[in-house]
């Protein structure tokens, strides 16, 4: 901090000495241009006052900054002291624990080595015994035991090989299976197509029903026309009968007229003529058939 203060005083003197010639030069120029000495001195005093206050503010800011740095440095020193304290404690703890740990490691290692040694000796004994047994049995059965085992092993291999091959094929088939998303999309497309097909078939069915109804209506109209034609035919027959009867009557009258003075009233056989007309005309009962409503006796089976 003393160093920082010394540096601030030096800078003040440096700036003041540097500015003095400039100030004096300014006074001279101002005086030459007619400015009164009072005004010049007043201006110089204002300049010195401004410079002084700026320097004062700058020094105060500098002092505050220095105090802040001093407090920060104190805090850091305290923290470093605390860390060093913890480190020291850890070192003492490690120094206390390390001999104990090394002792435990040595004990477990020795124990493990002992176990390994015992197991290996035990297995080696078992292997030797098994080998002795195998050798003895092979010698007893002339090597058939080993051959039997080999055959059993081969049989098991043959039995399992197809299963392994099938598993491999299944795995390949599974890998080649269609993606679920594709299946669902295909199903959706099929359902949509089926819906459209059913809709089209429904329209065809409706059109077929409409055509059938129209066909029935046309058939009914044709039947009505056929019945009407029968009536027309009947009327034409009647008219033909009437025409023929009138012609016959005309001929009869002409014949009578040709008799001249020999004719008499009996020559016109009215009853016979009427009877003849009635015979040619259809029966009275058929008149009822001109009415289309009477359909009780239309069909009779014998």
């Amino acid at each position: 901090m003393q160093q920082i203060q010394n540096n601030a005083d030096g800078k003040f003197l440096y700036i003041s000495l540097s500015a003095l010639p400039v100030i004096l030069g300014g006074m001279v120029v101002g005086w030459q241009y007619g400015a009164t000495l009072y005004n010049v001195l007043f201006s110089v005093l204002l300049v010195f006052f401004g410079i002084g206050s700026g320097l004062f503010l700058w020094r105060r800011h500098d002092n505050e900054l220095a105090q802040t740095n001093f407090r920060w440095a104190q805090d850091e020193n305290s923290k470093i002291a605390a860390v060093s304290t913890y480190t020291g404690e850890l070192e003492r703890l490690l120094l206390t624990i390390s001999p104990i740990l090394s002792q435990h490691v040595m004990v477990s290692r020795e124990h493990t080595e002992q176990e390994i040694t015992s197991l290996s000796s035990r297995f080696s004994c078992m292997v030797n015994e098994l080998q002795l047994i195998v050798d003895s049995t092979d010698n007893a059965f002339g090597g058939r035991q080993s051959n039997h085992l080999d055959s059993v092993i081969d049989a098991c291999r043959d039995l399992l090989q197809p299963i392994l091959d099938l598993l491999g094929q299944l795995r390949q088939a599974e890998q080649k299976a269609v993606d679920d998303a594709v299946l669902s999309q295909a199903e959706a497309n099929i359902n949509q197509t089926l819906a459209l097909l059913s809709q089209v078939l429904g329209h065809y069915r409706d059109d077929a029903c409409a055509l059938r109804n129209h066909a029935e209506q046309i058939r009914g109209e044709i039947n009505n026309v056929l019945v009407a034609l029968q009536f027309q035919d009947r009327v034409s027959q009647i008219l033909t009968q009437v025409e023929n009867n009138l012609l016959n009557l005309q001929k009869t009258i002409e014949r009578i007229q040709q008799q001249g003075s020999n004719r008499d009233g009996d020559m016109l056989e009215v009853d016979k003529a009427v009877e003849h007309i009635e015979e040619n005309y259809k029966s009275v009962s058929s008149r009822a058939k001109h009415s289309p409503d009477d359909s009780d006796d239309d069909l009779t089976f014998f």
Binding site: N223, Q230, S286, L299
Partner: peptide, 11 residues
């Protein structure tokens, strides 16, 4: 059978 005129075609 006996069918009277005028006849209905369906009959």
């Amino acid at each position: 059978a006996w069918v009277t005129k005028p006849f209905q075609p369906p009959i």
